[in-house]
Design a binder for these strands. Structure first.
Lengths: 337, 337
DNA sequence: TTGTAAGCGTTATCAC
DNA sequence: GTGATAACGCTTACAA
């Protein structure tokens, strides 16, 4: 069956295609009775405008690319929900690109983004490099980076919706210094090294200011199937610090399990906090302290920012950097005093 | 800066645009030295073919739509990974559509799918209706439904990659009958009613064959923030069945927590199994039994099936239904005897 | 082997 | 108000 086009509708309604185009675009210069006639023809034929042809004619695809690491998919689902919802509101389509070790390098993703002529892109701040950003910049595609802070940003059409992990770590560690606790471990999460880097910076800064040196950045190689496996093993033989900071829920859960099995009492002998909150943290026993970020809102804000950049909103020219706040959630694995 | 087109390349290389088109499409009729000349021009100008224009010219967008419920995002991440990876291999772009209660109804999603002129669609078998499927069918968009079995399928270009949840439930319940256990509860998960329906069918069938009636389908209304909250409360006051089957990890975890707090021993007094496996099931204590499905593979298989349908592979004409197997994973919440 | 020109389905600029 | 017609950027017969 032949795909029906604007011509078919024009013929059916006995008008020119220009008129049909006018009614589907709500141009108000068309007379009421012909509008109705055209509408009926559209209805009758089941006509849907071809977005591809529109895209070509308008040099505008009304689609936005989202790129994120495949591994981070389930963790970022809330942010994605926020992104999708406001994209929907503004009638943007979403093109999804994932990066993963073997199959799709950032280079390919950029290639297909450029070819697709999307109007803008949302980039999760994971594992892309300076040069890769540069390419997107070269093609002048408006974008906003969401997640953590990007440094050394070329001024141009790139926005940033971020959490200041450095500040978070700095302040949190300082609050423990005040309790007299200085033996602190930070456990690396390989899935998001850029955020880990910022956390580490914050911790180191806090130590430095006290004239101490931070030395317990716990890292491990890829021989472990997961950070969970590593931690389970690691803490069975290594005496844990007074405070252990992990990035993800799974790491914290692994840690408390290992403690339990080794007979170490949490939070009496060691306290633990996961940076990223997740529902599982309150499902396990003891419940695990963490930080709450407004994930959904971050996504929504990021997408809103991008749409504003796309219509060249003046208000957005000034301020394309939005810092997102967070709150500490005290649960059973940390002590208040 | 003006977007550079095939004309610019043609001029730069001093050939016609047809020739440029030939080299970017690997047409082998072009002489080696002119190919090189064109390649150099492309390189020099940083030319990337406009996929929109290509789409229009070819009536083929090389993009595939994926539609799934927003709520199910994090749960389906593995399947999505599989889908994305093979889409990447076949050079398809992915358009992502989510459905959610308030904002985007299936109707709108279909509308934008049709307008986008995507080549095919992957549909997660959640909450769409017969008529909605019908619309897609009307526009002759090839699609494959992934997740559970669709019934009463119009023969045409729709495939199905599925798990037979009815069979799973039927066989599992029967295995417990053999152990002499007949007091069994099935806990509803509102996020995926189509799968729940199939599970329930299987359980009921097993009961029926034994001349019994299945009565413990545990459901609850939306006043609860989550199934977790409900279960925690429910099982604090209600004596649990000998075997409790939940759909998701969070429900099973809620249940064992409630048991723990109520002093009920698992698996001695009540056994629990979650249908969908997830890493958290082996992180909690006791570890929770479940079924393992090859999520990633399901995604990969579904996408591969779709791509075959798109090239009109003869081999696929016959068999567009692929059943996916599963294995039972015995952990600490169930007993072997 | 290469070039010319029609066509893909729209929108937008003109006239009328 | 409405209708021709030229873009938009590419592919692909058909000619040369």
């Amino acid at each position: 069956m032949k795909r029906i086009t604007i011509y078919d509708v024009a013929k059916e309604a006995d008008v020119s295609l220009a008129t049909v185009s006018r009614v589907i675009n709500d141009s108000n210069v068309v007379r009421e009775d012909t509008r109705i006639r055209v509408q009926e023809a559209i209805e009758k034929l089941g006509y849907k405008p071809n977005a591809i042809a529109q895209g070509l004619a308008l040099s505008k695809t009304t689609t936005i690319s989202i790129v994120m690491s495949e591994k981070l998919f389930s963790y970022n689902s809330k942010i994605l929900n926020g992104l999708m919802d406001v994209a929907k509101i503004y009638n943007y389509n979403i093109m999804l690109h994932t990066t993963s070790k073997g199959i799709s390098k950032m280079q390919d993703v950029i290639e297909s983004i450029v070819k697709s002529r999307v109007d803008g892109v949302i980039l999760f701040n994971d594992n892309f490099s300076e040069e890769e950003l540069e390419v997107l910049h070269l093609y002048q595609i408006p974008m906003v980076v969401v997640g953590s802070k990007i440094e050394d940003k070329k001024d141009g059409n790139v926005g940033n919706v971020y959490i200041d992990f450095e500040k978070l770590a700095y302040e949190f560690v300082n609050s423990y210094f005040e309790k007299g606790i200085t033996d602190i471990s930070l456990v690396e999460d390989k899935l998001n090294l850029s955020m880990m880097h910022q956390l580490r910076q914050g911790v180191e800064k806090a130590y430095q200011e006290k004239g101490m040196k931070f030395e317990k950045y716990i890292t491990y190689d890829d021989t472990y199937r997961s950070s969970y496996d590593f931690l389970t093993e690691y803490f069975e033989t290594t005496k844990p610090s007074e405070l252990v900071i992990t990035f993800r829920d799974s790491q914290a859960i692994a840690f408390i399990n290992a403690c339990h099995e080794a007979g170490i009492k949490v939070p009496e002998e060691t306290q633990v906090v996961a940076i990223l909150d997740d529902k599982y943290l309150r499902m396990v026993r003891p419940t695990i302290s963490s930080f709450n970020f407004p994930d959904y809102d971050m996504g929504a804000i990021a997408m809103r920012l991008l749409t504003k950049m796309l219509v060249n909103d003046e208000a957005v020219k000034e301020n394309k950097d939005i810092e997102i706040g967070y709150t500490y959630i005290q649960r059973q694995t940390t002590r208040l005093d």
